[in-house]
Design a binder for these strands. Structure first.
Lengths: 225, 225
DNA sequence: ACGGGTGCTGTGAGGACGCTGAGAGGGCGC
DNA sequence: GCGCCCTCTCAGCGTCCTCACAGCACCCGT
C-alpha cells in the first residue's frame, strides 16, 4: 500500500512516515502543494494524506486539481482549523475524509484503513434530487429523460445546490463557492443565475425545485420539486 | 520451441543463435526487416526477437505489419535507444516486451521465457463508440466499413477520447494525456486537433460525435454520434 | 392599504471561448 | 538534399456567456 503524505511541518511529516512505515505502508513525502500534486498525479498512490495549509498550493487546490485531472485516489484532509465550513469545503472539493489537528495517531490510522477499504471509486456518483440528475463526469443534466443544456456557471451553481439538497444556502455562501472566495461583484448575480436555472430545470416541467428562502437564500427541494 | 531472431549485427545474431540453441530452442535468423517479416509470417514461430534498427524495414514496421496481418506471435523488441517514447512506440505497435541494448543475456532469456509462458494473446479489444472503431494494435480507425487515415497525434487524441466515452474531458486533462504531463505550449492545439478529427471522422459522414462542452472541454458521444 | 425591503427579470455591453485558415518549422523517407 | 507530411502557433472572427443595471413584482409588517 502506497501512501503520499503532503505536509509542510517536517516533524509531523516524518512522524507519519515512520509510523505508517511501521504499519507496512510505503510512504512518500511532499512538503508543499505543488510537489504534492505532481507526486499524486504520477505516483499511483492508494491514498493521499493532505494538509490544507501548505506552501505554494493549498490542500484545497491540490485536491481540486487532482479530481479535475480525473484522479480519484482517496484523500484524507488534515487541518488546523475546526470550523464546520472548512470541513464542508474540503469534502465539497472531493476529499474523502477529514481530520482536525491535533488528532490522535490511532484515529488517523483507523480512518486511513477505512478509506483504503473503500478504495478509489471510478468517478463520483451522479448527483440527484428526485428526477433531476447531474453527472459531474459527463457534465450532463437531465430532468427525467430530457437532457438540459446548461452554461458552465449554471452547471456549477446547480452542482453546488445538489451537493446540499434541502439545505438553505445563503447568497454569500453560494458566491464564495460557485463564484470565487473573494468575489467583488454585485451579489445580484446569484438571483440572476437562479433565475436562469429555474427557466431551464423547472419552468418547462412545471416544477418548483429551486425554492427561495426569503432573507436566507435558496434551497433545492430534495425530491427535485 | 521455434524462435526467430531478426538482427542485423551478425555477431550478436550468431551469439543469440548459439546461446538459445544451447537452451533447446530452434533459432532462425534474419538480417533485415523484409526477410524477418517474411519468415515471421510463414514460419509459425513461438516468439520473435526483433531489433528496431534494421535495414530495409524497421522493427517497428515489421511488428506493425505482423499485427496487421493478424499474426500475434509474441514479439520481444531490442533497441539501442532507451527513451521512454521509443518504448511506448514499440508497445503501442504491438510488441509484447522491450529490451534496451546493451542487455544481459540472462535477462533476455528470462523475458523470453516469460513471453512464451504467456503465449500468443488473442487480438486485443478494439475501442468503439457506435460504428466508430479504433484498434490500438493495428493503429487502424474505421467508421463502419470505411477506413480512416489519421496522423499519430490525431490517433492518440481519438484513442484517449474513446477510452473515456461520454465523459467531458477538459483541455488540460487532454493536454497532459495526449501531449505531455508538462506541456508548455498553446492549449489551442487541442482545439486544432479536435477540428482535424472532426473533419476526418465526423464531417464526411454527417456525424457529430465529438461534442464541445463549452467551458469544460470535449466529449465523445458514446454512441459514436 | 401603504411602504420598505427583498427578490425577479429584460436589456445590453463587454469579454471569454472556441473554430478555422494560413503558414512556419522540423522530421522523415526517398 | 529535397520534398512531403506532421505538428504547432498565431490571429481573426463569430458566438455564447457573464454580469451590471434598473425598473418592476412581491412579501410582509404596520
Amino acid at each position: 500500500m502506497r501512501v503520499l503524505v503532503v505536509e509542510d511541518e517536517v516533524r509531523l511529516a516524518r512522524a507519519l512516515q515512520r509510523g505508517l512505515g511501521a504499519e507496512g505502508f510505503t510512504v512518500d513525502l511532499a512538503h508543499d502543494g505543488r510537489d504534492g500534486l505532481h507526486l499524486a498525479l504520477e505516483g499511483d498512490y492508494d491514498a493521499v494524506i493532505l494538509d490544507i495549509m501548505l506552501p505554494l498550493l493549498s490542500g484545497y487546490r491540490v485536491c481540486q486539481a487532482l479530481r479535475e485531472a480525473g484522479n480519484w485516489v482517496p484523500v484524507l484532509m488534515l487541518s488546523a482549523k475546526d470550523g464546520e465550513h472548512d470541513q464542508a469545503d474540503g469534502l465539497d472539493l472531493g476529499a474523502d475524509d477529514y481530520l482536525t489537528k491535533p488528532f490522535s495517531y490511532v484515529v488517523l490510522l483507523a480512518r486511513l484503513r477505512a478509506l483504503l477499504r473503500r478504495g478509489a471509486p471510478d468517478r463520483p456518483a451522479v448527483l440527484a434530487a428526485g428526477d433531476l440528475t447531474l453527472d459531474p463526469a459527463t457534465r450532463r443534466v437531465h430532468r427525467g429523460e430530457t437532457e438540459i443544456a446548461l452554461t458552465p456557471r449554471e452547471f456549477s451553481l446547480l452542482e453546488f445546490l445538489l451537493r446540499h439538497p434541502g439545505e438553505a444556502l445563503s447568497k454569500s455562501r453560494i458566491l464564495t463557492h460557485v463564484w470565487d472566495a473573494n468575489y467583488e461583484g454585485d451579489p445580484n448575480v446569484v438571483e440572476v443565475y437562479v433565475g436562469y436555472l429555474r427557466r431551464k430545470v423547472d419552468a418547462p416541467f412545471g416544477r418548483r425545485s429551486l425554492e427561495t428562502v426569503r432573507g436566507a437564500g435558496y434551497r433545492l427541494a430534495s425530491d427535485g420539486g
